[in-house]
Design a protein around this nucleic acid. Sequence first.
DNA 1: AGTTACGGCCCGAACTATCG
DNA 2: CGATAGTTCGGGCCGTAACT
Length: 542
Amino acid sequence: IATVFLDRCLAFCRTGGTVSAVMPQNWLFLKSYMKLRERLLKQEQWELVARLGEGGFHSSAAAGAFTILLGISHTRAPEGHLLCGLDVSEERDATGKARSLLDAEMTCVEQGRQLENPDYIIGVDQNESGEPLAIYAKSLAGIDSGDSQRFRFKFWEMDSLLKGWIRQLNSATQTMEYSGREHILFFEDGKGALSQCPGASIRNIKYWGKQGVSISRMRNIPASLSIGESWDRNCACIIPKNNNDLYSLWTYCSSQNFITQVRRLNQKLSVSEATFENIPFDLDHWTKVAEEQYPHGLPDPYSDDPTQWLFHGHPCGSVIWDEETKQLAHGPIRTDGTVLHVAIARLLGYRWPAETDSGMELAAEAREWVQRCDALLPFADDDGIAGIPSLRGEGRLVDRLRALLAAAYGTAWSPDVENELLRAAGYTKNDGRLRGDLEGFLRDEFFASHSQLFHHRPFIWQLWDGRADGFSVLLNYHKLDRRNLERLIYTYLGGWITQQRSEVAAATPGAEERLVAALDLKGRLEKILEGEKPYDIFIRWK
DNA sequence: AGTTACGGCCCGAACTATCG
DNA sequence: CGATAGTTCGGGCCGTAACT
């Protein structure tokens, strides 16, 4: 409607009269306004384009709007007419923008030259040299599942890929060689329920298997390498026509320069894939940069992030890019916030896809860590149920966890490292001191931060009776079938109840309360086992 | 003329900052 | 530290350009 107003206002003007308007910015570059831009550039005289950016109004109700201040005169522009550009979008509020408009540096460009821009996009910045990227590569849209709740899971929600499921690239949160590898899709070879789903859109699958650069369309367009995986709607996959160009293409797409170029053409929050084909690409220049940055070629797939399917599975192992040798290398032993989570998941019998899928393409250094995980397999619990207090004579979870960590760290293991891990996992008070010990972490903190780390799709669950000194277990939900639920109720909880009974008989303080809480929990678990409404949750889920 | 899929809008969940 | 308000962004939906 803003462009219609502008058009009407120009029509109201007598020849040479000027319209000045504050309006939304999008029509300056969106493809659907291409014809309007062409007409206004050819028939009217552009005086001023000032980018105001976000927050151009005092009112917070319009905070999200991206605006421009425009001046156009109703007359045909003479040959060589200069249009003036200002950019105050960096100023955060209306007052700052108003001040900046008076003294910001003005860029003047020939109006006629705007007709040479791709899609007649209006822009006053310097043009980058190079051919459009479209000459060297295609930018392609990914699959839109139409119902991701149904068709898309995180890989850790499945013990191993079931028939019909494939791994799928999703948008990365930051630019790095290998990221955005969390999702699996129920694709069924494109012939099953997904293909029937209204709203689903299967796109560009003939390009699967080709290497490229996967770009997330949002905000600062982070990039990641694709080794030929499928990809989703929020990414665009840029696939070079000549595979040899991949590494210059990657060097460009992962640079700040790339973001600048894309944003010069399109300032929308979410950029459409076609925009990437329009930006200039200087192949020779970026090949030189790539030869410096990657003299031995691009690194093979690797990741230290347990939310990536490429993760090697080792609690403290690390593979890093060595800037000295320009090659992958074993990094320092990790002590970040994910170490405890990986160790606990391993103890409950979970293994990462890279461990069980021997066909997965993986860097040699990452494969070594996968192999070193074998030494940790004996620490895995047999039924995926581990008591925080000792149950069934299995020992306390905290002791079993320390044993696993000691094996993983070897000589580097110490109580100091344990405290460092707790601190890294966020188990601290405001003053930076620890909130408690490792057992406290397991009881009070682990499940919440496990859920947060794994995108609110936890696969290790905590089951407890609500008492700080009560029955509490962690369990691996991949192993929780009916048999194991029975075992949980009658062996683990049953044993705990027997123990509380004898403590009651011996008049141990608190035993009475613990027994009551445990019996209550047992009653509720049995109802789930029976599966009568509303306790049929287990039946519906398994 | 019918079909496909690109491009962009916009809802609402999730996240972040601020306040009491 | 928890509640609340403000902000960001993933992704479903749909119009329409492009293609067959």
